[in-house]
């Protein structure tokens, strides 16, 4: 059994792990895309990202809409920024939406997963590529590196990004993987319950491209758990072979505090355990609390801070009558 897992992982790593340099020929990529009649939407979920959003829109629109027409739309879906994120994005030519204004009969939750889910409703593309707004070294590879495997390989459904591979010329050996939450929480959990998913080098990376036919069939936790749940749900339904991953080299972004990562880990763990229960992998699991308790020191005293992290989940979009009607899928 374990041998099968190792074999599958090795085969998958050989065939479904790419480097963005393999897709440098954008003219050819666009030709193949157009031959298939595919449309591609870029979704950038935002909350107070005025520092980086301008550059991201300028570079991606100029390079991947104007110069090389790979993208059919660029949309910013915002959770209610208090800064100038929306004005900046609109100023440089992105379509700008407030998450709360999309599909309003479903209400509004604040969270990245909510914006990603609303994107399925709002955007037009057969492929949606999600790119976080906090990338300081944005480059077109962050998009074409992810959509190219979907264009060239019809059997691939979901492409994740990974970063910072050791230099081939260097003798130095460095761990190449995810951040702290990936290595301390997600990778051990996957090793225990979904060992094949450990092949994905950075399961929590915020950049991925997915076919609409997949996105509309999976539920979306509105907060931190969205990436982890996607991997489990897509894996459970379509198997490891439906995934690919692309090395996008270096990604420079904000550093998060350990306290913030604690909250992230809590949300991920809740989403994970929910799936463990749904798949009947473990039984007798108690009702999960939504409260995370953290401490901070003030003078000689410790103060408790209790966060409520409910990690609500949005249902598969395909189950929504309004969506079916909008996309003429009723028949």
């Amino acid at each position: 059994m374990m041998e099968d897992v190792v074999t599958n992982i090795n085969e998958w790593l050989d065939t479904n792990t790419f480097h963005h340099r393999q897709f440098w020929d954008l003219l050819n990529l666009i030709e193949v895309k157009e031959r298939q009649g595919l449309t591609i939407s870029l979704c950038i979920p935002t909350l107070n990202e005025e520092e980086t959003i301008g550059k991201e829109i300028v570079v991606l629109k100029s390079e991947l809409v104007d110069r090389y027409p790979l993208l059919d739309e660029i949309a910013v879906i915002d959770s209610g920024s208090m800064d100038r994120t929306l004005q900046m994005a609109a100023n440089f030519g992105a379509d700008v939406y407030l998450s709360a204004d999309i599909f309003p009969e479903m209400g509004f939750n604040r969270g990245k997963g909510e914006n990603l889910w609303k994107a399925i409703y709002q955007l037009k593309g057969d492929i949606i590529v999600y790119v976080d707004a906090d990338i300081k070294n944005i480059h077109p590879r962050f998009v074409y590196g992810l959509v190219a495997p979907l264009i060239y390989r019809p059997e691939i459904k979901y492409v994740k990004a990974f970063y910072d591979r050791p230099l081939a010329l260097s003798n130095e050996i460095r761990p190449s993987g995810g951040g702290r939450v990936t290595e301390i929480l997600v990778r051990p959990l996957f090793s225990l319950f979904f060992p094949e998913l450990t092949a994905i080098i950075q399961p929590l990376s915020g950049e991925y491209a997915v076919r609409r036919t997949v996105l509309e069939q999976i539920p979306f936790p509105v907060g931190y758990g969205v990436e982890t749940s996607h991997l489990i749900d897509v894996y459970s339904r379509w198997g490891l072979e439906s995934f690919a991953q692309t090395d996008l080299d270096r990604r420079v972004h904000r550093h998060q505090s350990t306290r913030d990562l604690g909250r992230m880990a809590f949300g991920i763990l809740r989403a994970f355990l929910k799936r463990i229960r749904a798949h009947e992998i473990v039984s007798g699991m108690p009702e999960l609390t939504t409260s995370l308790r953290q401490f901070q020191a003030r003078g000689n005293e410790f103060e408790q801070i209790i966060y409520d992290i409910a990690e609500e989940e949005r249902p598969p979009m395909i189950e929504q009558e309004s969506y079916l009607k909008k996309r003429n899928l009723n028949n």
């Binding site: 570079v59 104007d66 440089f92």
Partner: peptide
């Protein structure tokens, strides 16, 4: 209308 092309080149060259 083509200003963003210049800005994108400026960013990519400058970085």
């Amino acid at each position: 209308p083509f200003q963003e092309m210049l800005l994108a080149n400026l960013v990519m060259i400058g970085e």
